[in-house]
Amino acid sequence: MILKSLRGVALLLVVLFFMFPIFWIVVMSLQTNAEILSLPPKLIFPPTLMNYTALITGHLKTSVGTLNIAFMHNLWNSFLLSALSVIVALVLGVPAAYAFARYKFRLGEDMAFTLLSLKFAPPLLVLLPLSLEFQRVGLDNTYIGLIWIYQLITLPLILWIVRGYFEDASPDIEYAYRVDGHSWLKGFLKIAIPLARPGIAAAVVLSIIPTLAIALYAQRWLVEGLSLGAVKG
């Protein structure tokens, strides 16, 4: 009994310790600049939504003057870019994952591994040559150029996670569907894709997380997908 309550107290302390930074960030977001910088830090202060207003309107009014911040624009850019690049990666990656899972073809494993190896490469390695090359062909500072580059991250992720799901589904299920009288394409859309849906959802979330934390939206799939994805790698 005592041991149990001690354990509870210990757990509480651990949680408080690790949650404190987040708590402190929330507290700071409700303070003015002066209050944030004051020493000793204040725990009692008149809360203000000034910081949030500034982020949304794009103008931060301080005692010195007005500062323009492009937060909403950048957020929108991030959202647009990650959404578009994930869509492109899905259109390319899901059929490719199916092909790698179901068919044996020459150099198939090599191709799949090469795509995966792109994830090992340090981004800095390709940064300089790529930006020079992009400037030459006029792709620098364009959405298309960025979406293209994002494929280095998203495509292997989607390919490898979704492939595992296709491999886990028995091909007999698709065969049965075809013997029933459905075309290959219909079987792909109505059987293969729905069966791999948790994998596809996990891959989408994992590729979006680096740029956006809209993950809560897909929480059910996220938890299932992340845990499965972690096992499958």
Partner: peptide
């Protein structure tokens, strides 16, 4: 192709 053969099939793992 299989869809044009009009067969029935029962699989070992039910499928």
């Amino acid at each position: 192709p299989p869809e044009a053969r009009h067969l029935g099939m029962a699989f070992q793992n039910f499928a």
